[in-house]
Design a protein around this nucleic acid. Structure first.
Length: 268
DNA sequence: CTGGGGATC
DNA sequence: GATCCCCAG
């Protein structure tokens, strides 16, 4: 009987198939890595979210927020930032969109037009440059707050840059940020979007010795002061915002974390 | 990086 | 409303 395929030929086919299979699995693995690195839905983020004060908590793909219908903006926005998310891709700024996930109706960007205030990102566009989808998602009106340009482009931008430096240094951190909505200094547009009197930012990360957190509260005005001048306790922010941060931590850890600021754990 | 506004179709 | 161009801190 005539043999159709020689042994060397079959070997070659087998080797080729193994090679292709390995390459495929490798690509799958890389894809998984990209997705894991890009996703904000880490267990850590869920673990660090503030306690709900309404039913308007919205999980976007790359950040989570709670919307205040009265203030027409988020009361907090939370996301996890990892070192590998900080890329330098060139993306063009999209148009701001009304967040369709806000059931009561998120504010229209027109409220901000010629108001004298910037559309200030809460989850910065600069932290979500690792994909077009992630970047565009920060341009929802549920993720912005009216900010003076001197504030947004000044001291607040310095803080955001410092946060990016910390993400590069420490690998991963979770950030919760928002404005003080209680006694707005102004209301803009037809929808009367609140203009916060100050903005806060809370950072937490996990290292070998446990959790370490840092909190900033910056008045809504221009400032050349060192960022350290705006350090406060998380307790202080809780009192002003009436939010409860880190409710899932055990009470002792929560109390310790919220009462102090561990400046020495964070290299300025 | 953080943003703005006008002109045009 | 979307896009392109030019602007400032």
């Amino acid at each position: 009987m005539k043999r159709k395929y020689t042994y060397p030929f079959l070997m070659m086919v087998a080797v080729t198939l193994i090679f292709l299979a390995e390459r495929y699995l490798d690509a799958q693995e890389k894809q998984k890595y990209v997705e894991a690195g890009a996703s904000v839905k880490s267990e850590d983020l869920d673990f660090f979210l503030p306690a709900a004060t309404s039913n308007q908590i919205i999980n976007h793909d790359y950040y989570t927020l709670e919307y205040s219908e009265e203030a027409e903006q988020a009361s907090w926005v939370a996301y996890t930032l990892t070192k590998d998310q900080l890329t330098e891709t060139n993306l063009s700024r999209p148009y701001f969109e009304i967040d369709p996930a806000v059931k009561t109706g998120a504010a229209h960007w027109r409220n901000y037009k010629n108001s004298g205030y910037d559309r200030g990102h809460l989850c910065p566009a600069g932290d979500r440059r690792f994909s077009t989808q992630a970047y565009n998602e920060t341009f929802l009106t549920s993720n912005i707050s009216p900010q003076l340009q001197e504030f947004n482009g000044g001291v607040w931008n310095r803080l955001e840059n410092q946060v990016r430096d910390w993400a590069r240094r420490y690998g991963e951190l979770t950030i919760i940020t928002g404005g003080l909505l209680k006694d707005p200094v102004d209301k803009i547009g037809e929808e009367e979007v609140y203009v916060p009197s100050a903005f806060y930012k809370i950072l937490i990360r996990k290292d070998a010795s446990g959790f370490t957190a840092l909190a900033f509260l910056i008045p809504h005005s221009e400032s050349d002061q060192d960022l350290k001048a705006f350090l406060v306790t998380i307790d202080a922010i809780e009192e002003l915002t009436e939010l409860d941060f880190f409710p899932q931590l055990d009470d002792a850890t929560e109390a310790q974390l919220e009462a102090s600021h561990s400046v020495t754990d964070w290299k300025f």
